[in-house]
Design a binder for these strands. Structure first.
Lengths: 251, 251
DNA sequence: TTAATTAAAATAATCGATTATTTGTATGAG
DNA sequence: CTCATACAAATAATCGATTATTTTAATTAA
């Protein structure tokens, strides 16, 4: 059912190649913010940390760069993709446009298998949602959440579009996971998912896309509050640092 | 003005790294159909052909895979992305949606610099258009054409969207260049470009996006005629081959 | 004849060492 | 003191050889 590979989110690193295993581990570290946005990635450090040679490491970094999680500067090196207000707003805007389009096609084309896959994906997510208050299985929830959104649009018969939506979902998730780290249980999300599913199953395209849009926008609004705070803090720090340098130079 | 790098389309291969140089050369070979869709890419062959080691070669292939020009199968190898009716239809559909969105934003945000860049890009394209009957500078036209479409949407302030549009443009171009290889002069295209530019400069969003849509669809229709032929021929050949095998087995 | 099994060849993935480039630091001239 | 230059250290890019995996071909049994 799923055209969009979810392999890189699975917790086991038994990928066929070393490169894919390293890519998965790096991806997780970046998604969780363990590797901070904008951080420089020195090849030698990574090499010794993951105990691999340069070849698979470069391969892994290349792959992450194509998902927009890493920036590459020729001859200069790699760094974790920085975060910014503009970037998150663009990601959100594109998610709404592209996922809506995909959902519309999916509703038009979805068959019985799609319907049951959707019900199943929601069920799994719903169960994890209730367990989410006791912290532990956050990764499982992230995975189920991604899978639910992916299943929604999986009948669209547009593999490229699905890929784009998956990439945008990941980019968006990084912001959410970094900024909403200490997140409290939010029953509203679960209900939103259910209503989107219901509208999709009822083949009510208008309603489904509208609900999806609201769902994405509401999450984005929560993230944006904290992101704005963080950006302001950082620019304040920067100014303070510049002030100190100015004084030092002056004397 | 241009957020979207066009470096990889320039004819000089003086890229900073070997990997990017190889990537550019491979890209050109694929875009021109010199490396046929679906063709297997053996590392050893490429290595000896381009006189490089495996490291930069893999790096180059990774980069092309992220543009969808190459497919990677772990432990199995690389192949040139195959072509299909469905794939081309999806590319066209996405181009229309995404370029329209980008054009809309670009018209909303475009300043004086954007306007003059657009006029300049059209001028360069227009001059090459008239020379195009005498075959030679086809690459120059392709580059100017890409640059015109890119400039149209360059004021959208959405770098990710620009990147997606550029990628889709390349994918679309491969089909056009492979199938419309012996293309005769088409004055209509030039006129279409001019009308799109005029509508954009007049800030007529509705008209500009509609004209852009028609422009993309008209080109796509031309390609699709030949693509359908080709697909039919291939399936016929396949049947014939199967027939032969069947006979051989039978006797 | 077909299907399963195994050995050999071809091919992809990885490694450790080498080369090229950039970055940081110190020195000296204006 | 500032800017420029040159040197040294750090880092990225590349290479040639090695290891692991897949594909092909040959062989045998059903």
């Amino acid at each position: 059912m799923s055209d969009l590979s979810l392999d890189h989110l699975k917790p086991d690193f038994t990928g066929a190649t070393l490169a894919s295993s390293i890519a998965a581990r790096l991806r997780m570290a970046i998604m969780e913010g363990e590797l901070a946005p904008g951080a420089k990635l020195r090849l030698e450090d990574l090499r010794s940390q993951y105990q691999v040679s340069l070849s698979p490491l470069r391969e892994a970094l290349s792959r992450l760069s194509m998902d927009g999680l890493i920036e590459v500067a020729e001859q200069k090196g790699y760094r974790v993709a920085p975060v910014s207000l503009e970037n998150y707003e663009e990601i959100t805007c594109l998610r709404i446009e592209l996922e809506s389009m995909a959902l519309e096609k999916s509703i038009a084309n979805g068959d019985d298998a799609w319907e049951s896959a959707l019900v199943g994906a929601f069920h799994r997510l719903h169960k994890l949602e209730r367990q989410r208050t006791d912290g532990a299985p956050i990764d499982a929830w992230e995975l189920a959440h991604r899978e639910f959104h992916n299943t929604l649009i999986s009948a669209s018969r547009m593999p490229l579009l699905l890929k784009m939506c998956g990439t945008l979902h990941d980019l968006s998730d990084r912001y959410r996971r970094i900024l909403l780290r200490t997140r409290s249980f939010d029953g509203g999300v679960d209900e939103e998912h259910r209503r989107i599913m219901d509208a999709a199953l009822a083949r009510n395209t208008e309603k489904a896309t509208e609900l999806l849009k609201q769902h994405v926008e509401r999450t984005a609004a929560n993230v944006l509050v904290l992101l704005r705070q963080r950006v302001e803090e950082e620019s304040a720090e920067k100014k303070a640092a510049q002030g100190r340098v100015g004084k030092a130079v002056r004397r």
